[in-house]
């Protein structure tokens, strides 16, 4: 389709959303509601064609789908895929009040699946390996045996920072006495972390705005 038309639509929708900066208005509401509708349908269409068609329908009905899934030609149906098809359809019963309880079966599959995936992976990647990675030498020496002050200080910050942060999150014991001091240090470490996160968030938001302003610039360039 026409690139110029696309640029004009792009610019119009961008300005409609930006108009919210002045105040809420019908143009913003129009764009916001359009976004909701278009995005929901877009996700459905992509999910259908890129996943359901090749990975479910192409396996259940290979001869029927051979026109759109070239790899399905000559393949025999894999009837095991009736299982995810049934669970998927059960999930859709949520749309009908009378049968909505059946959707719990599919939901149970998703929740059980997520729990089953997450348990060993968080244990391994986010717990065991993280603890291992924190076990660093507190005194760092160069090959000649000289103390590396900077590296040693950084390692101490890392080890103490993780310990203090964890103590702050440990709510089973009242944070009093020495535990109170450690927990307070934990808050300071977390404040540095949140400060860094804030700085990065600003960076991210400005980048997005820059992208939009560039798009508006491209539109303006078509007029001059």
């Amino acid at each position: 389709m026409d690139v110029t038309l696309q640029l004009w639509i792009d610019a119009a929708l961008t300005l409609m959303i930006l108009s919210f900066l002045y105040r809420d208005n019908p143009f913003y509401k129009f764009a916001e509601h359009l976004f909701v509708g278009v995005s929901a349908a877009y996700l459905m269409a992509i999910g259908f064609w890129d996943h359901l068609v090749p990975n479910l329908l192409g396996k259940l009905f290979p001869s029927l789908m051979s026109g759109v899934v070239p790899g399905a030609v000559g393949r025999s149906p894999d009837y095991y895929y009736i299982i995810p098809a049934v669970f998927g359809l059960l999930l859709l019963t949520r749309l009908v009040d009378r049968w909505a309880w059946l959707s719990r079966w599919a939901l149970a599959f998703i929740v059980g699946g997520s729990a089953g995936f997450n348990l060993p992976r968080f244990l391994d990647s986010d717990f065991i390996i993280q603890v291992q990675s924190t076990m660093v030498p507190l005194v760092v020496l160069d090959p000649a045996g000289n103390l590396l002050w900077g590296a040693s200080f950084s390692h101490i910050v890392l080890v103490l920072g993780v310990i203090c942060g964890l103590v702050y999150f440990f709510f089973s014991v009242e944070h009093k006495g020495i535990l109170g001091h450690v927990s307070r240090a934990g808050i300071w470490v977390l404040m540095v972390t949140f400060g860094a996160a804030f700085g990065y968030t600003v960076m991210a938001r400005i980048s997005l705005l820059t992208g939009r302003m560039e798009a508006l610039g491209a539109w303006l360039a078509t007029m001059f």
Partner: peptide, 23 residues
């Protein structure tokens, strides 16, 4: 360093929470 320490403390805390909830 400090960011990694703080994020790691949060990460370990979340991991323990996820493990317990999954179980």
């Amino acid at each position: 360093w400090p960011n990694t320490a703080g994020q790691r403390a949060i990460m370990i805390g979340i991991a323990l929470g996820v493990i317990a909830t999954s179980l």
